[in-house]
């Protein structure tokens, strides 16, 4: 019986099936909002699905110089790692399906794997634009990863736990403490925008500069899976922020908790869409400067606040 439930969790809810559907809904919300902010009509609700199906039906072209095994496997790695990450996140209540002490770090590194697969994908394509894109991928990784991790450590420090479920439970019991992390929340939002490689941090796939960056040589199913993985990454990142900084489901009844989860993730998606509407793409060296000069110190400052709060009030 245990195995059936496990499969159900992994494949249907909250695993593959639910997550892909919700990922596409989030992509649609993001695109629709982006369009409406720009005074455009935007795509119909089934556009992401249609795009995905279209990509699945397209021819796969693998460059002769590329390593075909790596080329085919990398999209799957990206998809698998985000799917795994989602299982450790509490959704409709404060407890995730799988949880252990330190899963915060595991989720964080599972979220890093897609970026690494993008890098490897670009590197293995051997095309000039893809190589440039993959180099930018890794360079950018060093810029946003540290502020993001530090900002996630803040709440963990406050709650004294490295487990997402325990952290969530802690904040549900003391919701007032969520306000302490407000700076960290914004730092995380900005860093996540860099992780998802969206404007102003879409440097690795800057269309007008290096065509499609790492994905230049990808087509058909493989590109479809990569795009799906990016959609899922958006959901996972939004859920992570909602659990860590917004209290997740607040320990309410599972149905209410689930509604709260939808509302919060969509809210985060909307904020991220707004970010990419109001800014221009910056240069890689501007991004490094911004992340290390402003974002990292601010997240450290947040950490300091949390240490002081913990020392005096808890």
């Amino acid at each position: 019986m245990e195995i059936v439930w496990t499969l159900l969790y992994m494949l249907v809810f909250p695993g593959f099936l639910f997550l892909t559907t919700y990922g596409m809904i989030c992509e649609w919300v993001d695109r629709k909002l982006y369009a409406r902010f720009q005074s455009r009509l935007g795509p119909p609700w089934f556009q992401p699905e249609a795009d995905f199906i279209k990509l699945l039906s397209k021819e796969e072209i693998i460059p002769e110089a590329a390593n075909p095994v790596m080329f085919r496997l990398l999209p799957l790695f990206a998809l698998a790692s985000v799917l795994t990450a989602f299982l450790y996140l509490p959704i409709w209540n404060t407890a995730a399906i799988y949880s252990f002490s330190g899963d915060l770090i595991v989720v964080f590194y599972l979220l890093t794997i897609p970026t690494l697969t993008f890098f490897l994908a670009g590197w293995h394509s051997t095309s000039l634009f893809a190589t440039l894109g993959s180099v930018r991928n890794v360079t950018q990784l060093f810029a946003y990863e540290v502020p993001l991790l530090i900002s996630l450590l803040g709440p963990a420090l406050l709650s004294g736990s490295w487990s997402l479920s325990e952290m969530n439970q802690f904040f549900v019991e003391r919701p007032i403490l969520l306000l302490v992390n407000i700076i960290g929340f914004f730092v995380a939002l900005i860093a996540v925008q860099g992780k998802l490689e969206r404007v102003p941090f879409d440097i690795p796939e800057a269309e007008t500069e290096i065509v499609a960056g790492s994905f230049t040589e990808f087509s058909g199913k493989l590109l479809g899976i990569f795009r799906l993985a990016i959609d899922l990454e958006l959901v996972v990142a939004a859920t992570l922020i909602s659990v860590v900084f917004l209290g997740g489901s607040f320990g309410l009844h599972p149905v209410l908790g689930f509604i709260l989860f939808i509302v919060k993730t969509l809210l985060i998606v909307a904020i991220l869409a707004l970010f990419r509407t109001v800014m221009a793409r910056i240069r890689i060296e501007q991004m490094m400067k911004f992340c290390w000069r402003y974002l990292a110190p601010i997240s450290l400052f947040q950490l300091l606040i949390n240490i002081l709060v913990k020392a005096w009030f808890l």
Binding site: S39, V199, D202, T277, V278, M279, A280
Partner: peptide, 9 residues
Amino acid sequence: VGFDTLFMY
């Protein structure tokens, strides 16, 4: 420079 909003406006 990736500022599509200005482009659209």
